[in-house]
């Protein structure tokens, strides 16, 4: 089992925004079924890194391989990767002109060419999975933030992805709605999904992470199992960061 090749592999990845270097020599691998939590101060490149994995950002140097596909300029390859990689955004980004169910089925229908009835059955299944089957016919604007984010998770799952990326999924939520979203993520983790989560929710990280990645100033500073990371971080920066966010 340990010999299985990583499903996501970043080698020596650099990324620039104009003159600003956002990522420097990123080496990062995720094995199938692994749950990785990426943390670090804001502006450290966490979001940029996971956005490179489904090429919402283009990297400038190094290689990124996702499920055996080397990410380059080939549009077909990029779309193939995106179909296998679900992404949940901080701002939900639901399609406001479509109902909840249509939000879930548009990917399967248009991209997977599934017929409408099958797609709706799939949509209802995942809506059930995130515990809001009764919201199927509403529009996103009629839902609470927590419900919207759960719809966003279900929308990604409808593509039956191999990997799920979470880009600060609870940062835009009111405090009382965070737990319902985290609960959905924990259930997903327990189902064996490969997950990469950028989040400040350290309680969640302790519960589900197999691996913690700490970033600062565009570099990966530390990679460790959560037990080790939370009790005895090797780097001073990680220790300071943990002190700051855990002292409350």
């Amino acid at each position: 089992m340990t010999a299985a090749p990583p499903i996501i592999e970043l080698c020596h990845v650099d990324k620039y925004f104009g003159p600003f270097q956002a990522l420097t020599d990123i080496n990062f691998a995720v094995r199938q079924g692994e749950r990785v939590v990426v943390c670090g101060p804001s502006g450290s490149g966490k979001s940029t890194m996971i956005r490179c994995i489904n090429r919402l950002e283009e990297h400038d140097a190094g290689t990124i391989t996702v499920d055996g596909i080397l990410l380059g300029d080939d549009t077909k390859d990029i779309r193939a990767v995106r179909q296998d990689v679900g992404m949940v955004f901080q701002q939900f980004n639901l399609f406001p002109h479509l109902t909840v169910l249509e939000n879930l089925t548009i990917g399967p229908i248009r991209v997977r060419k599934m017929d409408k009835a099958a797609a709706e059955a799939l949509g209802r299944k995942y809506l059930d999975r995130v515990h809001i089957p009764e919201q199927a016919d509403k529009f996103p604007s009629q839902l609470s933030g927590g419900q919207q984010q759960r719809v966003a998770i279900a929308r990604s799952l409808c593509m039956e992805p191999k990997i799920m990326l979470f880009d600060e999924p609870t940062s835009a939520l009111d405090p009382e709605m965070i737990s319902e979203v985290l609960e959905a993520m924990v259930e997903l983790a327990n189902s064996g999904m490969t997950m990469v989560c950028v989040t400040h929710e350290m309680g969640f990280a302790r519960r589900v992470a197999d691996k913690m990645v700490f970033m600062e100033a565009g570099r990966i500073v530390e990679t460790a199992p959560p037990g080790e990371f939370f009790t005895a971080p090797k780097s001073d920066r990680a220790r300071m960061f943990l002190d700051q966010i855990l002292e409350h």
């Binding site: 779309r79 995106r82 179909q83 992404m87 701002q91 990604s156």
Partner: peptide, 22 residues
């Protein structure tokens, strides 16, 4: 909003589909 593009891209839609449906 730009987020609409990103959400549509991340479900694997082509540019033409993103314009047409989103």
């Amino acid at each position: 909003a730009l987020g609409q593009w990103e959400a549509a891209k991340s479900v694997g839609m082509s540019t033409a589909q993103i314009y047409r449906y989103i």
